[in-house]
């Protein structure tokens, strides 16, 4: 027996307020939530295409985010630019292990993991896979929850730039890498937002 979903019961659940509405007979009629007025759809329209678009844009920008310096410490007029990875190495060399671990997890591990997981979810949905659907939904919730924490490095750069302003003596300047990195974080957040996890479960109805 197939489980009773809102879709099979002829109902649509609002993305915003989770109210249930009856699906109209005409297929493409624009429908608004009876409670909060938001446009409602059975599934996010164009979910897979839009998620892919944001994801691919993030993957492309991930290259300059890692290849270019994320921040330079200008000391007596001489700049010392460092990429994300070099920054982690520097912290390890200075013996700041806990910091190195935080920066590694937030700036390298989470963005990479998030992009891989989203690509995996998209491909498995497109192949209508029924493999471990509970775990794949959990994976989605995890990536959605954890993605924002990659902003840590951007904030660190902002705080350091605001504090270390000693004219020609010392200053801290964000590099091109930080701009691309921030864009990667924002784009992957959009990607996760556009992905509709209910598509994972639609494979049950085949």
């Amino acid at each position: 027996m197939q489980p009773l979903t809102a879709a099979r019961a002829g109902l649509i659940s609002c993305h915003v307020c989770h109210a249930l509405a009856r699906r109209p007979a005409a297929r493409d009629a624009a429908l608004h939530c009876p409670r909060c007025g938001a446009r409602i759809h059975q599934r996010i329209p164009g979910s897979l295409g839009e998620t892919w678009a944001y994801l691919l844009a993030a993957v492309v920008l991930y290259i300059p985010a890692n290849a270019y310096p994320i921040m330079s410490v200008v000391w007596l007029g001489r700049g010392e630019p460092a990429t994300i990875f070099e920054g982690v190495i520097q912290l390890i060399e200075e013996g700041m292990w806990p910091l190195a671990l935080i920066v590694f997890i937030a700036s390298i591990f989470i963005p990479l993991l998030k992009m891989i997981v989203l690509a995996f979810l998209l491909i498995s949905v497109q192949r209508r896979s029924r493999w471990r659907m509970v775990d794949r939904t959990r994976l989605y919730r995890m990536t959605e929850f954890v993605g924002r924490w990659s902003m840590v490095d951007i904030f660190v750069i902002g705080i350091l730039a605001a504090l270390v302003q000693f004219g020609s003596l010392a200053s801290i300047e964000p590099g091109i890498g930080s701009l691309s990195f921030a864009a990667v974080v924002v784009l992957t957040m959009f990607a996760a937002h556009r992905f509709d996890p209910r598509l994972i479960w639609d494979a049950c109805n085949d």
Binding site: T5, A6, A7, A9, L11, S13, Y140, P197, R198
Partner: peptide
């Protein structure tokens, strides 16, 4: 009381 799961659509 009736709700559809926002992650898997189960009523």
């Amino acid at each position: 009381k009736l709700i559809a799961c926002h992650d898997c659509d189960l009523l």
